[in-house]
Simulated scan of single mutants.
Amino acid sequence: MTANAQAQNDNWSEEAYAASASFVYSAKIVGKLLNSLDPKPTDKVLDVGCGDGKFTANFLPAIGSVLGIDSSASMIESANKDYASPKANFRVVDCRYLEKETSIVDGSWDKVISNAALHWILRDETTRMSTLRAIHGCLKLGGTYVFEMGGHGNVAEVKTALLYALVQQGISIEKARDTSPWFFPSDTWMRSALEEVGFNVENVELEYRPTKLTTDAEGGLKGWIRLMGAQFLEALPEDNRDAVVKEICDVLQTVVTRGEDGSQWLGYVRLRGIAKKI
């Protein structure tokens, strides 16, 4: 999912996401997170970083109502087009500043869920803790917060290749690092942060989960780099980006490709947690 800083270009679209990262909301991939949500027919759920709503659709039939929020206007438009109903609504919200949304941060939610979004939202160090405090403030006493995001070491091979590609283009390593749109914390960091804002943490865990890339003509490794690494590429002149993407794919070819069938896999590391407001 997205929920990236609104100050950045909105590079997201339902079509690009489906081509390059449809695995993010597949029931098989998100099964553990959905089990943690434990949806009930009376639940009022807030979905933070909902993207185009396809993940939300996994639990929508089992709950009372849901509000999905995301910073990408194009993704929210898709979510409303496909899934809006009397019990499902989707709104454009820059989740870095969730605490300003007083109609949401009102202590009325039974559950808050977030899938594959917090590593974008928490990238901004200046708003990191205030966002987590706002999520805590959304919940009723006894309410549950469940999440899954990129954890420490997530897609390390691609991130390394992107950083090095920028350095090869004359960008300093410091600026290249600052260009990264992701924050992949450890389980230790996340547990401490959640406890600091008042949560009772039931579980936080890291899982190494190699993930197969799509085989769509517009997806695969090239599509993933263009979509997920868009902010890296925006640091380069536009007429040079295609060549850099090709170079990155060439460097990673034997790293991510399995010889027996040619499938390509990235080293996803997922950080998953359950916390209660007490």
Rank of each mutant, 00 (worst) to 15 (best):
A7G: 11
S13Y: 10
A18T: 10
A19T: 05
V24H: 12
S26C: 02
A27G: 03
I29L: 06
V30L: 00
G31P: 01
L37Y: 15
L37R: 14
K44P: 01
D47P: 11
G51I: 00
D52G: 06
K54L: 12
T56D: 14
T56S: 15
L60Y: 07
L60G: 05
V66P: 10
G68K: 04
G68S: 13
D70L: 06
S74G: 03
E77V: 06
K81T: 11
K81M: 07
V93E: 06
V93M: 09
L98Q: 07
T102W: 10
T102H: 13
I104S: 04
D106R: 12
G107F: 15
I113N: 04
H119M: 02
T127Y: 14
R128P: 00
I135H: 05
I135W: 14
C138R: 05
K140G: 00
L141S: 02
G143P: 02
F147G: 00
M149C: 10
G150T: 02
G150N: 04
A156G: 01
A156W: 15
E157Q: 11
K159E: 12
L162G: 03
Y164K: 12
Q168M: 11
I171N: 04
I171V: 14
I171Y: 14
I173C: 01
R177H: 07
R177V: 09
P181Q: 11
W182D: 06
P185T: 04
P185Y: 15
W189T: 06
R191Q: 13
A193S: 13
V197A: 06
G198D: 09
F199T: 02
F199M: 06
E202I: 09
E202G: 07
N203R: 14
N203H: 13
N203A: 12
E205D: 12
L206A: 07
P210N: 03
T214F: 11
A217L: 09
I225C: 00
I225G: 00
M228T: 02
G229L: 11
A235F: 02
P237F: 12
E238C: 01
D242W: 02
V244Y: 11
V245M: 06
V251P: 00
V251F: 15
V255F: 12
V256D: 06
G262Q: 07
Q264K: 13
L266C: 05
G267Y: 14
R270N: 01
R270G: 00
L271I: 01
A275D: 08
K276M: 12
K277N: 00
